[in-house]
Simulated scan of single mutants.
Amino acid sequence: MDHPMPSAGRTITLPTIDHGEVTLPEPSWCAGHADHRPDTHRADILHKGPDIVLAFHGAEIIAAGLAQSPCATLPTRPEFGGRTVGVSVSPVDRTLNPVQLYSLAAALDGFADQLRDLADQLTAILAGGAR
């Protein structure tokens, strides 16, 4: 079942290689289509919101943002999203639904706990404790 976000009347017209000019409702969260190329197929049009990014020392660890392919056909690879709005996550290279996104957040929480355990272990080693 499709769950498009309300567009508040905004539309975007984009050139495509297979359907010419295509006019679509544009979700309020869409950051625009500055990178759209005219040789794009209609099924590959992507609404993308701004990413949230976890970076450390200038390196991007993970990024995520809303995404929707409003003209997608039946997906041959559902992990890349479709007509239903999802959250695109990289470098996981998947578009996740809410349940999957909560699972990722739980995995990241678990990883953070493991990092804290390593920090505790390293602190003990550096203090001359456990080797």
Rank of each mutant, 00 (worst) to 15 (best):
A119R: 13
G82V: 00
P75L: 01
L104K: 03
G20V: 05
I45D: 04
T13W: 01
E60K: 13
Q68L: 04
G49N: 05
L118Y: 14
P27W: 06
A106E: 09
L54R: 07
G81Q: 01
T76N: 15
S88Y: 04
V89A: 00
D113T: 12
I62H: 02
L96S: 01
L101S: 10
R37H: 08
A67S: 04
S28F: 06
P50R: 14
V99Y: 09
T84C: 12
R77M: 08
R77A: 05
T13C: 00
F111D: 01
L122I: 08
S28H: 07
L46M: 15
D109Q: 14
D120Y: 05
G58Y: 10
I62P: 01
V99D: 09
V22M: 05
A107I: 10
T40A: 11
A55R: 12
C71H: 12
V53E: 07
D93K: 15
I45T: 08
L118G: 08
E26R: 11
G110S: 06
D35P: 05
I17L: 13
H41Q: 08
V87W: 03
G65S: 15
E60Q: 11
A63R: 06
T76M: 11
A119D: 12
V85K: 01
R94Y: 04
Y102D: 08
I17S: 11
